[in-house]
Amino acid sequence: MESKGLSRNNRENKAKPKRKEIIEKRKAMDALIKVASAEKDYLSAFPAFRHYQISGLSAFLESGRGDKLSSPVKQFIQNLLKANMEGPYGSEWPAEEKVKRREMVAPEAHYVFVRNTSNASSGEFLTTSECEKTSASCVEERGPIVGFVHFRFVIEEELPVLYVYELQLEPHVQGKGLGKFLMQLIELIACKNHMGAVVLTVQKANSAAMNFYLCKMRYVTSTISPSRVDPLIGIEKSYEILCKTFSNEAKAILEEPLELVHSV
């Protein structure tokens, strides 16, 4: 009887460190997310990605945050989302639009905005913070916004990840390599902030987006995607969750030769 009691105590003692380890791991991930989310300008670490130029398009990228958006920028985001996503969502769009409007202005919503500078003045570009310190006309002088990425740092399946909520471009700047350029930047931001993966949701009806992520960007269907969790549930759902995880080797490749990542 006594030996059984000791055996049970030993098992309990062995379980305690495991529980403690899980708690400490969660604290470490929460701290990682907090640090990553506190950054004000994610482009500051990647100056080569401030500008994008290809035949017929010259663009400037800048950072933003959901609770700092101006009214015109909010309206632009709403209009572009409706133009690009109403079709793929179909009858689900009215309800989804309300959700996206709430998500858009959350403090944890981070942005990379793309401004078309093809017809803007050729003067020196200011950073977002510098622009805010000057006049409101500065924004217009730097060209109109033609696209954006909305992303957040979250924990999915016990892994800290960068979750891409939206990647939206106006039709006239699509097909110019800009989407790939933005996703390469996102992957760099994820690696720099020690995230384990980039995750995103794509509507099945959006065949162009599905092809872009699966074929061009080499994303795969996540284990938490409906079709992977349960094929029957997957048939009913209108979306897939895609991801790209980063090994140490992949992180090294992403973090070193910016020229290769920068190429279209």
Score class of each variant (00 low, 15 high):
residue 258 L to W: 05
residue 150 H to W: 06
residue 23 I to K: 15
residue 34 K to P: 06
residue 213 Y to P: 02
residue 79 N to Y: 10
residue 171 P to R: 05
residue 204 K to H: 06
residue 173 V to I: 10
residue 207 S to N: 06
residue 110 H to Y: 09
residue 158 E to Y: 06
residue 176 K to A: 04
residue 77 I to T: 07
residue 141 E to V: 06
residue 32 L to Y: 08
residue 180 K to E: 10
residue 137 S to V: 06
residue 25 K to Y: 09
residue 214 L to A: 12
residue 100 K to C: 12
residue 6 L to P: 02
residue 180 K to D: 04
residue 222 S to T: 10
residue 117 T to W: 01
residue 263 S to D: 05
residue 122 S to Y: 06
residue 103 E to N: 07
residue 240 E to D: 04
residue 179 G to L: 00
residue 117 T to S: 09
residue 234 G to L: 03
residue 59 A to D: 01
residue 124 E to C: 09
residue 176 K to Y: 04
residue 102 R to E: 13
residue 244 K to C: 07
residue 21 E to G: 13
residue 37 S to L: 12
residue 8 R to W: 07
residue 142 R to C: 06
residue 148 F to V: 09
residue 138 C to F: 08
residue 162 L to D: 00
residue 240 E to F: 03
residue 242 L to A: 03
residue 152 R to E: 15
residue 159 L to H: 00
residue 82 K to V: 11
residue 34 K to M: 07
residue 57 L to V: 03
residue 42 Y to F: 15
residue 54 I to L: 11
residue 175 G to K: 00
residue 44 S to A: 13
residue 202 V to M: 00
residue 153 F to K: 05
residue 123 G to A: 10
residue 76 F to L: 11
residue 218 R to M: 02
residue 70 S to L: 12
residue 30 D to S: 12
residue 192 K to Y: 00
residue 168 Q to W: 00
